[in-house]
């Protein structure tokens, strides 16, 4: 069967019309969903730019009637507790990530180099906490009664140092490295430590970058450990500070940073949220491709 030219043309054009219609429909739907996803963010940002009075009287709106930087001005006039929170979070995130990366990559590398039955056993040993744990209360007791880590920055760092999942990701990445290179370095007399630091690590930067990013974000966004172990307001990390402010605006008003003046609580809260979340969103935007690339490399098998 052969189509004549005209038939073919009309077939093609109706196909195109259909395709155009389908595309418009799909794009429209996607734009709607994407808009719905981003709307709450915009709402918080615009609320932080609305005068407090308007928030209380007129409520939250997408576009503020009269934009103002009241909340931000207030926030940066006496930013002591905010800066402190940032400082704690920075110290914890940076030390935690550095130490954690070192420990996780060493464990992963070790697991990838051992062969035979020990390897299976050790892998299970690493994986087991993912599957089973004693629960929150034993964890709390160990941290406070055995290690006495209440009100200490170490309590914010230790628990997240080694994530079994990441260790296994790194192990499978190290497994993929060409073993000949490692072997030849060994023949040339390099110690295992030297092979690790000078050959395995440089060859694994993509995996390390991804996992480093995950670890960093994990530390940055954590409020859970602070909630459990930190009572001293000076040691509040950023996220927990946010919680305290959301929790009770009165405490915030009484804090030394704002004494004497009544703060624009509603818009101030939202401004705090923006200031605290900003860096994470920024980092995610620019390093997002590492996320995608990093996950592909660990088929975890």
């Amino acid at each position: 069967m052969q189509l004549t030219e005209t038939k073919k043309a009309s077939f093609l054009s109706s196909y195109r019309v259909q395709k155009r219609a389908a595309e418009t429909l799909i794009h429209g739907l996607m734009i709607l969903i994407a808009g719905g996803m981003i709307l709450p963010f915009i709402l918080v940002i615009s609320a932080s730019l609305t005068p407090n009075q308007d928030l209380m009287v007129k409520g939250y709106k997408i576009i503020p009637d009269r934009p103002s930087n009241e909340a931000y001005a207030y926030l940066f006039k006496s930013p002591a507790s905010l800066i402190r929170g940032y400082g704690v979070t920075l110290i914890v995130s940076l030390t935690g990530t550095t130490l954690g990366m070192l420990m996780m990559s060493m464990t992963g590398y070790g697991l990838s180099r051992i062969i035979g039955r020990t390897r299976r056993a050790l892998t299970l040993y690493v994986l087991f906490p993912v599957l089973f744990s004693g629960g929150l209360i034993p964890f709390y007791l160990v941290m406070t009664q055995m290690y006495h880590l209440n009100d200490s920055l170490l309590a914010l760092i230790f628990p997240y140092l080694v994530s079994p999942f990441n260790v296994l990701l790194l192990r499978s990445y190290f497994n993929q490295l060409p073993q000949e290179i490692l072997e030849s370095a060994k023949i040339d007399g390099a110690s295992e430590a030297r092979i690790f630091f000078q050959i395995a690590i440089p060859l694994s930067t993509p995996a390390l970058a991804t996992i480093g990013l995950f670890t960093l974000l994990g530390y940055w966004n954590d409020f859970w450990l602070a909630m459990l172990f930190i009572r001293d307001t000076k040691l509040y990390p950023l996220q927990y500070l946010l919680f305290q402010i959301l929790n009770n605006a009165q405490a915030f008003e009484k804090s030394p940073m704002v004494q004497g003046i009544s703060p624009p609580t509603h818009s101030l809260r939202m401004a705090m949220a923006v200031v605290a979340a900003g860096p994470t969103i920024f980092v995610s935007l620019f390093l997002g491709r590492y996320f995608v690339r990093g996950i592909t490399l660990g088929a975890l098998k």
Binding site: F41, V44, K58, G59, K61, L246, A276
Partner: peptide, 23 residues
Amino acid sequence: MIVGYIAYALLGANGFINTALKE
């Protein structure tokens, strides 16, 4: 954490949804 703030902005007594309802 941020989700909590966002939920509050949406659902609170003066939140976005209630403002819309009032209007």
